[in-house]
Simulated scan of single mutants.
Amino acid sequence: MSDSPVQGIKTVLHPVSDLAKAKAVYAALLGVPPTADSSYYVGFEVGGQHIGLVPDGGQQGMTSPVAYWHVLDIEAKIAELTAAGAAVKEAPHDVGGGRLVASVTDPDGNVLGLLQDS
Results as ranks from 00 to 15, higher is better:
1 M>V: 05
1 M>S: 14
4 S>K: 10
4 S>A: 15
5 P>G: 05
5 P>W: 02
5 P>Q: 02
8 G>L: 02
9 I>A: 04
9 I>F: 10
10 K>D: 02
12 V>A: 01
13 L>C: 03
14 H>A: 03
14 H>P: 00
14 H>K: 00
16 V>D: 10
16 V>E: 05
17 S>W: 01
17 S>P: 00
18 D>A: 06
19 L>W: 09
19 L>H: 11
19 L>M: 06
20 A>V: 15
20 A>W: 01
20 A>L: 07
21 K>S: 13
22 A>Q: 10
23 K>C: 08
23 K>S: 15
23 K>T: 15
24 A>G: 08
25 V>H: 12
26 Y>M: 12
26 Y>D: 06
26 Y>P: 09
26 Y>V: 15
27 A>S: 15
27 A>W: 01
29 L>I: 14
31 G>S: 08
32 V>K: 05
32 V>R: 01
33 P>L: 01
33 P>M: 00
34 P>T: 05
35 T>I: 09
37 D>F: 06
40 Y>K: 09
40 Y>P: 00
42 V>F: 04
43 G>N: 08
44 F>E: 09
44 F>T: 09
44 F>P: 13
45 E>K: 11
45 E>G: 08
46 V>R: 12
47 G>C: 06
48 G>E: 07
49 Q>C: 13
50 H>G: 04
50 H>R: 13
50 H>K: 11
51 I>T: 15
51 I>R: 00
52 G>L: 01
53 L>E: 08
53 L>C: 06
54 V>C: 04
55 P>Q: 03
55 P>C: 04
55 P>D: 04
56 D>L: 00
57 G>M: 04
59 Q>Y: 03
59 Q>T: 11
60 Q>N: 09
61 G>N: 12
61 G>D: 12
62 M>H: 11
62 M>L: 14
62 M>Q: 12
62 M>V: 09
63 T>A: 10
63 T>I: 03
64 S>L: 02
66 V>G: 00
69 W>H: 11
71 V>M: 09
72 L>W: 05
75 E>P: 02
75 E>Q: 12
76 A>S: 14
76 A>F: 01
78 I>W: 00
78 I>L: 14
78 I>M: 12
80 E>Y: 02
80 E>A: 12
81 L>A: 15
81 L>Y: 15
83 A>R: 07
83 A>S: 15
84 A>K: 13
85 G>C: 04
86 A>C: 13
86 A>W: 02
87 A>R: 10
89 K>N: 14
90 E>V: 15
91 A>H: 06
91 A>F: 07
92 P>I: 05
92 P>N: 08
93 H>F: 12
93 H>V: 05
93 H>Q: 07
94 D>M: 04
94 D>V: 06
94 D>H: 03
95 V>T: 11
95 V>P: 03
95 V>W: 00
96 G>R: 06
97 G>I: 05
98 G>D: 10
98 G>K: 08
99 R>N: 13
99 R>W: 01
100 L>M: 15
101 V>P: 04
101 V>T: 13
102 A>W: 05
103 S>G: 10
103 S>F: 06
106 D>Y: 05
108 D>T: 10
108 D>I: 02
108 D>K: 14
110 N>C: 07
112 L>C: 07
112 L>F: 11
112 L>G: 00
114 L>H: 09
115 L>Q: 09
